[in-house]
Nucleic acid binder design. Structure first.
Length: 102
DNA sequence: CCCATGACTAATT
DNA sequence: AAATTAGCCATGG
């Protein structure tokens, strides 16, 4: 069954390593109007596919980490591992590493 | 169908 | 610049 969550997860899966995306971008990619990012964040929190989805590549619009089911620390660690530095809970060169699906 | 919740964001104070 | 308020979408009970 194709749900909103499935679409979100599919997109998140497509985010290339070393890059990050935002909840807003995902919503835009889904062609939803208004603030879909709410539902997006909620969908990821459900996290029905724990390892299959690199949810850690999705951050807030301002570059802050936001949240993570396994803990923000873990998320930051994973990002750093992939080449994305995080300082003070903010992604370094966030705009450059931002992936908008377009 | 109505209410509550959430890993959000933009605007206001 | 930090904290608060309000707005909006999808999902579950």
């Amino acid at each position: 069954m194709k749900t909103f969550q499935d679409k979100v997860l599919s997109l998140v899966k497509k985010i290339p390593k070393g890059k990050v995306s935002t909840y807003k971008a995902v919503g835009k990619a889904l062609r939803r109007r208004g603030q879909v990012y709410r539902a997006v964040g909620r969908a990821l929190k459900e996290n029905i596919y724990p390892v299959a989805i690199p949810c850690h590549r999705v951050v807030c619009s301002d570059g802050s980490i936001g949240g993570y089911s396994r803990g923000v620390r873990k998320k930051i660690a994973l990002l750093k591992k992939e080449g994305v530095e995080v300082k003070k809970n903010k992604v370094v060169d966030f705009k450059k590493k931002l992936f908008t699906f377009f």
